[in-house]
């Protein structure tokens, strides 16, 4: 079997020395899988994703990308190596035009910028209509598309998405999940997804993890977790 696209081994770490938010986490995303992390507020979901992306400190443990150890690499190095990250909040450059947002996304692979920008406009035709508009003036859903497209510019092999549906109108939430699936299918990218909309996220996921107080409480396929009565009661807000 080939190496996982992303794997996290025995990870302990956080933001400040002496306060470990993550307390020994193992997680793996196989090529072209969608893997979802759910868990209560403050469980450390965002921190886990940030630690994988070099934005939070890893005290012990490893992060492997395609079998290579990338623990502690700077974010721009990780982008160059094929990880894309869409943060939970403030994930577009508000005064930059849509086109310039994409250009920044492609900055590690400048030779691809022209071709990839056109490709992104095919995938997200709404963005083509707004290419000259400042990203800060877009609607929430459109902004999320800009953020996705920006992260997809350099053809990443792994995409880290932190609550992409947060704060969006219910009608658009469905659209976001469709986009995630489509991106996975068309761009052959593995997705690690953090979601509050746990049911919908698990429904499109191959596998999932439940994070609680910095540790993995449950793991399984999306269907298994949805069917597990304990998980349902504790983390999915009852039946």
């Amino acid at each position: 079997m080939s190496a996982p696209a992303l794997s996290i081994e025995q990870l302990v770490g956080g933001y400040v020395v002496g306060v470990d938010i993550l307390r020994g986490i193992d997680l793996r995303v196989n090529p072209c899988e969608i893997v979802t992390i759910i868990g209560p507020n403050g469980a450390g979901k965002s921190t886990l994703v940030k630690a994988a992306f070099g934005l939070a400190k890893v005290r012990t443990g490893r992060v492997l990308l395609d079998g290579d150890d990338v623990t502690g690499c700077r974010p721009n190095e990780l982008v160059r190596r094929g990880i894309g990250y869409v943060p939970q909040r403030q994930n577009v450059f508000p005064t930059l035009s849509v086109r310039d947002n994409l250009m920044i996304g492609g900055i590690t692979r400048t030779e691809l910028i022209a071709e990839r920008t056109e490709r992104m406009f095919e995938v997200f035709p709404r963005l083509k209509e707004r290419e000259k508009q400042a990203a800060g003036t877009l609607s929430g859903g459109e902004r999320q598309m800009v953020a996705f497209a920006r992260a997809l510019m350099p053809r990443p092999s792994v995409l880290l998405l932190d609550e992409p549906s947060a704060g969006l109108a219910p009608r658009i939430v469905g659209e976001v999940f469709e986009i995630i699936q489509r991106v996975r299918d068309e761009a052959n990218v593995s997705v690690l997804l953090v979601e509050q909309n746990a049911r919908r996220a698990l429904a499109i996921s191959d596998r999932g993890y439940v994070l609680d107080q910095g540790m993995t409480a449950y793991e399984g396929t999306g269907t298994e977790l949805l069917a597990d009565p304990k998980v349902g009661e504790l983390y999915l807000g009852g039946a």
């Binding site: 974010p75 577009v92 005064t95 930059l96």
Partner: peptide, 24 residues
């Protein structure tokens, strides 16, 4: 230019620029 756009990106949001792969 890419350099100029990177400068504007940093002005907007350094962390996001870093996360997008800009060599800040």
């Amino acid at each position: 230019t890419l350099l100029g756009t990177s400068m504007r990106a940093l002005s907007d949001d350094v962390d996001l620029a870093e996360s997008s792969g800009v060599d800040t």
